[in-house]
């Protein structure tokens, strides 16, 4: 408990710094007023809007007003959609979760069997093939993989739809695109983690007791090998969300990533802010959970 509390305290300065970074970024964008008013607006009209919005105040004052708004959950309106920015972001969240979840399943289905196999058959032809494939998966840009999947499985052989979100069929190609990159990383992790565990004494003991190799590998080794893998994967949340930005753009998947890329291109900063905060909080929380999980799964790690 004490540990959790200490870590929660640590996140406060981090969150404050994030608000400062985002605030500075948005304010450097130039004058938001000129984006809000039509080009024909007079200088007086601009000035009065600036005053109404508080842009004539000194920056520190603006920052504190801005913090107050954040605490109340007020991120302003999207000037593109003319609605509350946070509502817009929340509306897109389920689609992104769906994609992220499906990608994780793809990644697990690929990496768990391959990672175990390449560790058990170390230095064999399989191992070489799998590790080679994992490096290749890391080297391929995900958006290119996505385009190639579209080319082969949606254009040449029309099995899957090219883009959009409308049922299970639409989910497969984006999930494969995002999942392959994660699978490449996870396969390497599971392999090296398994190799470490398989060399330990308790595995030798289990084998010398006459247990079947399958039970040794699956029950004794794999469960222990999972501990670092789970932790490191939870720490990849930020990368996973970053991946959705690109994958959603390639497949016109109507999630948070697509909304963000559009908002950035249109300089719709209220939406960018709302989404960035939500993502940052999400990442910080999942890092915390990863840390706690690591401690729970492996009681040997002491609480300090």
């Amino acid at each position: 408990m004490k540990y959790l509390f200490q870590n929660l305290l640590k996140t406060i300065p981090v969150l404050l710094l994030i608000t400062l970074i985002v605030f500075l970024l948005v304010r450097v964008t130039g004058d938001p007023v000129s984006l809000m008013l039509p080009e024909t607006a007079t200088e007086e009209e601009r000035e009065s809007l600036r005053e109404a919005l508080g842009f004539n105040e000194p920056l520190p004052v603006q920052y504190f007003t801005y913090l107050g708004d954040l605490v109340r959950g007020d991120f302003g309106d999207s000037f593109r959609y003319n609605t509350d920015a946070m509502a817009l972001v929340l509306e897109r969240l389920p689609a992104t979760f769906e994609l992220a979840f499906a990608s994780m399943i793809v990644a697990i289905l690929i990496s768990v069997p391959l990672g175990i196999l390449s560790a058990v058959k170390r230095n064999s032809f399989f191992d070489l093939f799998i590790t080679g494939g994992a490096v290749l998966g890391k080297a391929m840009p995900s958006f290119w993989l996505g385009i190639m999947l579209i080319l082969f499985l949606a254009v040449n052989v029309q099995i899957f739809p090219v883009s959009g979100r409308d049922g299970f069929q639409h989910l497969i190609l984006p999930a494969l695109t995002l999942g392959t990159g994660i699978a490449a990383e996870m396969t390497r992790l599971i392999r090296s983690s398994m190799l470490e565990i398989l060399g330990q004494d308790f595995i030798r003991t289990a084998r010398s007791k006459g247990l079947k190799e399958g039970i040794v590998v699956n029950k004794h080794a794999f469960r222990n090998a999972l501990i670092p893998v789970v932790t490191i994967m939870a720490l990849q949340t930020s990368t996973l969300i970053g991946g959705t930005l690109i994958t959603e753009t390639v497949f016109a998947w109507p999630g948070l990533g697509q909304l963000l890329v559009q908002a950035v291109n249109l300089r719709d900063m209220s939406v960018v802010q709302a989404a960035t905060f939500l993502i940052a909080i999400f990442v910080i929380m999942s890092n915390l959970i990863a840390d706690l999980m690591y401690r729970m799964l492996d009681p040997r790690i002491k609480y300090d």
């Binding site: 710094l17 970024l25 964008t29 970053g242 950035v264 960018v272 960035t276 940052a280 990442v283």
Partner: peptide
Amino acid sequence: RTVDSFLAIPNILFMLIILA
């Protein structure tokens, strides 16, 4: 803490915002 806050924002998103 600055490092932590940078790490909490996916780097591609961070870069997109600054480039915008």
